[in-house]
Amino acid sequence: MTVLENVKVALQRPAGLSYQFWRPLSTLRQLDARAMELIDRVGLSDAIHFEAASLSYGRKRVLEIATTLALDPKVLLLDERLAGMGHEDVHRVAGIIRDISRECAVLMVEHNLNVVADLCHRVTVLQRGEVLTTGTYTAVAADPRVREAYMGNEDD
């Protein structure tokens, strides 16, 4: 399916069309405007007719964000969304996440500390499944327990 078709499929549920696949394709034209808004918002307007499978790794992840936004979430959960992306994709996707966070809560697991410092208002550090500390990035980064847990101590 194309980028546009993927977003339109995601929009079917909130439009009450998700279980009405027997309707003619023309019925889905009512979703075009909203689909294009979402596609523009995530920067894929140049790829609306491309097959999703042909997109780069970073652009596929962006398409996933667009299809999730189609469901009008109150909270967006992102688990290492930026892992494996090139630098320019990381920057672009971080900007999209920042934009989304203005209207929807975003909870993310992320190991790219530059992104965490740039995007996150509150950071929680886990060690072996337990909360080590919570606070601003600056406070958490300065916590000696965090430094020892993730960088070791001078004796190591």
Rank of each mutant, 00 (worst) to 15 (best):
F50A: 14
V115K: 12
K74D: 15
E130T: 02
C104N: 03
V62R: 07
V93L: 11
A52D: 08
Y137N: 10
T134K: 04
H91T: 14
L113Y: 05
H91S: 11
R81A: 15
H91A: 14
E110N: 10
M85D: 06
L107I: 14
D72Q: 10
I97C: 05
R98W: 05
A47N: 06
R92S: 06
H49G: 13
Y137Q: 05
D99G: 12
L119V: 05
A66H: 02
V90P: 07
I48Y: 00
G58W: 02
L132N: 04
V131A: 09
T138Q: 14
V116Q: 04
T136M: 09
G86I: 07
C120L: 04
G135V: 08
V125T: 02
I96S: 01
G84L: 09
K60L: 07
I96Q: 05
M85T: 15
H121D: 15
A117M: 09
T124Q: 03
V123N: 02
E80K: 04
R102I: 00
I48K: 02
V125Y: 01
G95N: 10
H111N: 08
H87C: 00
L82D: 01
G58S: 02
D99A: 13
T68H: 00
R92C: 00
I100P: 10
V90M: 09
A117S: 14
R98M: 11
I65M: 09
I97R: 01
L63Y: 01
L82A: 05
A94N: 03
A47W: 01
